[in-house]
Amino acid sequence: MNTVRQFLNFELIHLKAFTLTVADICSALLVVVLARLLLYLLKKYVLQLFFKRRNVAIGQQFAINQLIKYALYPIVIILVMQSLGIQPSVLLAGGAALLVGIGLGLQQTFKDLFSGIILLVEGTVRVDDMVVIGDTIVMVKEIGIRTSKVETRDETVKIVPNSKLVEDTVINWSHNNRPTRFHIDVGVAYGSDLGLVKSLLLEAADEHGQILKTPPAIVQFREFGSSSLDFKLFFYSYEFLRIEVVKSDLRFRVDELFRQHAITIPFPQQEVWFRNELSTSPSNKHQNA
């Protein structure tokens, strides 16, 4: 017993007003282990039961878990410092000037940190949401305290600063839980049977499994173009991430149906006239005479 006491009281560091013993290290480790155990039990049993009873969405579950974790971290850090004999108030007071300098140099980092808290609290962007950042369609995979992980249609994971999701204009297709309308452009030759064109476009949309029957697809005659009659085929779908694949399938089917019914998809054509200046010049006429 005395041996254990002596081991725990063994001084690893001894300065003027600071002494670090093995017991202090063990106390700090015990605080970390207990905090992780508490967080695990809270997520595994208390929160899971709460989520099931309230039918909380996956994105909201992730946000609540992250907020609890981030609220627990500062408490654990303070307790660990006290276990090691370090007073947080003294440390903060002594390093005030240093903290100011660090704060000025890490303004963007602090902006991202606060943006992460805003995202988790407001829930404007959640995990599994389909959003458009700039011109890129991505699915949100994880919202961290400073950065978020998103997955593109190429299944590439990108790390995005949280401030970009808060300050920039972001289109959230999953926010209203409704299907989104998309369209493809189609041009046909002048003189085509427009009623047949409309029915074939609707037939192509109706055959595709990823295009919703309700709301129904619609066809609009948009313009008399320079070389074609221009149509837009509007359709609704929940297939946000792979929508370009749906559009490609639709174009293949439209081209096939048009070929079967002898409907031409024109391409721009220009006629170029060459004028022979030599044949009309006076000198040329005199030589011919």
Rank of each mutant, 00 (worst) to 15 (best):
K111M: 11
D112Q: 07
L113K: 04
I117V: 15
I117R: 00
I117T: 04
I117D: 00
I118W: 03
I118D: 03
L119M: 03
L120G: 02
V121E: 04
E122K: 08
E122T: 05
G123L: 02
G123T: 05
T124M: 02
V125G: 02
R126G: 01
R126E: 02
V127L: 07
D128P: 01
D129P: 05
M130S: 11
M130L: 09
V131C: 03
I133V: 14
G134L: 09
T136Y: 02
T136N: 07
I137T: 15
I137M: 12
V138K: 04
M139F: 00
V140Q: 04
E142H: 14
I143V: 15
I143S: 03
I145Y: 11
R146A: 14
R146T: 14
S148P: 02
K149C: 04
K149I: 02
V150S: 08
V150H: 01
V150G: 03
R153G: 15
D154Q: 14
E155V: 04
K158F: 10
K158V: 05
K158G: 00
I159S: 13
P161V: 09
N162M: 07
K164T: 14
K164A: 15
L165E: 01
L165D: 00
V166K: 00
V166I: 13
D168P: 00
T169I: 12
T169C: 06
T169L: 10
T169W: 01
V170F: 04
I171K: 11
I171A: 06
I171M: 10
N172F: 00
N172E: 04
W173E: 10
W173R: 14
H175D: 09
N176H: 11
N176I: 02
R178L: 14
R178Y: 01
T180N: 13
T180V: 14
T180L: 05
R181M: 12
R181Q: 15
I184D: 07
I184C: 04
I184H: 02
D185Q: 08
V186A: 06
V186P: 01
A189N: 11
A189C: 06
Y190N: 06
G191H: 10
S192K: 12
D193A: 07
D193S: 11
D193Y: 06
G195E: 15
G195M: 10
G195N: 15
G195Y: 04
L196E: 13
K198E: 15
K198R: 14
S199A: 11
L200S: 10
L201F: 08
L201H: 03
L202Y: 06
L202C: 04
E203I: 00
E203P: 06
E203H: 10
E203V: 00
D206H: 11
E207Q: 15
H208S: 07
Q210F: 05
I211W: 06
L212M: 12
L212V: 07
K213W: 00
K213Y: 07
K213Q: 12
P215W: 02
P215K: 03
P216M: 04
P216K: 12
V219P: 08
V219R: 03
F221A: 12
F221Y: 13
F221W: 06
E223D: 15
E223M: 11
F224W: 06
F224I: 07
F224D: 12
S226M: 09
S226W: 01
S226R: 13
